[in-house]
Amino acid sequence: MNRKKILFVFNPFSGKGLIKNYLVDIVDIMVKAGYEVTIYPTQSSGDATDKIIKDAKGYDRIICSGGDGTLDEVITGLLKSKLDIPVGYIPAGSTNDFANSLGIPKVMTQAAKTAVTGAEFPCDMGDFNGDTFVYVAAFGIFTEVSYQTPQQLKNILGHLAYILEGAKHLSDIKSYNMQIEYDDHVIQDKFIYGMVTNSVSVGGFKGMTGDDVKLDDGVFEVTLIKTPKNPVELSEILTCLTNLRDDSDLIYSFKAKKLHIITKEKVAWTLDGEYGGEHDDLTINNLNRAVPLIVDAAEIVGITAHPTEVFEDPYENLSLEEIEKL
Results as ranks from 00 to 15, higher is better:
R3L: 03
K4Y: 09
N11D: 14
P12Q: 13
F13P: 00
S14I: 03
S14P: 05
K16Y: 11
L18R: 15
I19R: 10
D25L: 00
K32F: 09
A33W: 14
T42A: 06
K51H: 04
I52V: 15
D55L: 08
G58E: 11
I62T: 04
I63Y: 12
C64A: 03
D68H: 05
D68Q: 12
L71A: 06
G77W: 00
L78P: 01
L79W: 07
L79G: 05
L79A: 06
K82P: 04
Y89L: 12
A92K: 06
T95H: 09
N100Q: 06
L102K: 01
G103R: 08
G103S: 08
A111N: 10
T117N: 11
F121K: 02
C123I: 15
G130S: 05
T132Y: 05
V134N: 01
V134G: 01
F142I: 04
P150H: 13
Q151M: 08
H159A: 09
L160P: 00
A161E: 06
I163W: 02
I163C: 00
E165R: 06
D172L: 07
K174T: 09
F191S: 07
F191V: 07
I192D: 04
N198L: 11
S201K: 08
G203V: 02
G207C: 06
M208N: 11
D211H: 07
G218Y: 05
K226Q: 13
P231F: 08
L234G: 00
L241Q: 13
L241T: 07
L244K: 15
D246Y: 14
S248A: 03
D249E: 15
D249A: 08
K255N: 10
A256T: 14
T263S: 14
E265G: 12
K266Y: 11
G273P: 15
E274Y: 02
G276L: 06
H279N: 10
L282W: 12
I284Q: 15
L287T: 07
A297P: 02
T304G: 03
A305R: 03
E309A: 09
E309R: 01
F311P: 01
E316P: 00
N317C: 05
K325G: 08
L326V: 04
